[in-house]
């Protein structure tokens, strides 16, 4: 591994100043489960590594039924799935947090880190999109907020500018009669990268029979995680039935433009989008009724 400097600031202001004034390349270190590997394998480079786990705002986890969830960008996955409030309210987030690497990885890896790695296959990113989350970004010139679906711009790339840092992810309250689910397809049962992944969120009408609102997002089938807007819009007003889910799956496939690689062929990945959309919608509806 190439030599680099290390800083562990305890405030946001200090962190953004370090990042903004760094000579050469500065990288933010959260759980390190991607960054350390990338530096070791020289896939990424760093002259300065800024450990942000001592900054209170990045380690904060704050949920209230009215306000929703504010999730510090460096909060490790285990704190999410070990939180009973979140298990009840954001099941898709729990699904995703549970399968980012193995148990050891989840002791360190964070949702913010997953987002900033900006892999097309990032397990939690589609869920942020499906749940309508926003990203809070701090920088030398102040804060800004962007919808999660706009954050990633290309494989491994995102809209963070030099000196900027992802502080937190804000989720709206889940709402009445809503449910969500994330599923990925992997050849093994654990420790794998999604061949394709789908996250679905639905809100049902008062009777619990018709879809009032839906958001479907896809992983590993495009250069960035994608919001399946046509499928999501089409679902509104449709009965929550197997036929509906299957048709939504067909519409979601239209957003997929996957590549063929060691993880699967383009044809197979596109097919999986249909299967996973159908399955996650069914599970989300079941949870909404639950």
């Amino acid at each position: 591994m190439r030599s680099f400097e290390y800083e562990a600031p305890s405030s946001l202001a200090e962190a953004t100043a370090l990042l903004a004034s760094a000579k050469g390349t500065a990288r933010v270190l959260a759980g390190g489960t991607d960054l350390v590997v990338q530096l070791r394998e020289r896939l990424r480079d760093a002259d300065l590594v800024v450990d942000v786990k001592h900054i209170p705002e990045l380690m904060e986890l704050n949920y209230s039924p009215g306000m929703g969830l504010r999730l510090g960008a460096s909060v490790p996955c285990y704190r999410i799935y070990e939180n009973p409030d979140l298990v009840a309210t954001y099941p898709a987030l729990i699904d995703a947090a549970h399968i980012v690497g193995g148990w050891q990885i989840q002791s360190r890896a964070s949702i913010g880190g997953n987002l900033c790695t900006s892999s097309p296959a990032g397990d939690t990113i589609t869920t942020l999109i499906a749940l309508g989350a926003h990203c809070v970004i701090a920088g030398p010139h102040g804060n800004r907020e962007v919808p999660a679906q706009e954050f990633c711009t290309a494989p491994g790339k995102n809209l963070l500018q030099k000196g900027e840092i992802l502080v937190a992810i804000v989720f709206p309250g889940p709402g009445q009669k809503s449910g969500s689910a994330y599923e990925r397809f992997i050849p093994r049962n654990e420790m794998d990268i999604a061949v394709a992944g789908v996250s679905s969120w639905v809100r049902l009408d008062a009777a619990g029979k018709t879809i009032a609102e839906a958001r479907v997002a896809l992983a590993a089938v495009a250069p960035t995680p994608r919001f399946a807007s046509e499928a999501s819009q089409w679902l509104v007003g449709k009965p929550a039935t197997a036929e509906t889910f299957a048709h939504a799956g067909e519409l979601a496939k239209k957003v997929a433009s996957p590549i063929s690689d060691m993880r699967g062929t383009a044809e197979y990945r596109t097919h999986l989008v249909g299967v996973l959309t159908k399955r996650t919608l069914a599970k989300a509806v079941e949870r909404a009724c639950g």
Binding site: R188, N189, D192, I193, R263
Partner: peptide
């Protein structure tokens, strides 16, 4: 796929 991640030997969950 020259890594344990992508070479995919069975884990105990498999």
């Amino acid at each position: 796929n020259a890594s344990f991640l992508d070479y995919r030997m069975p884990t105990c969950l498999d």
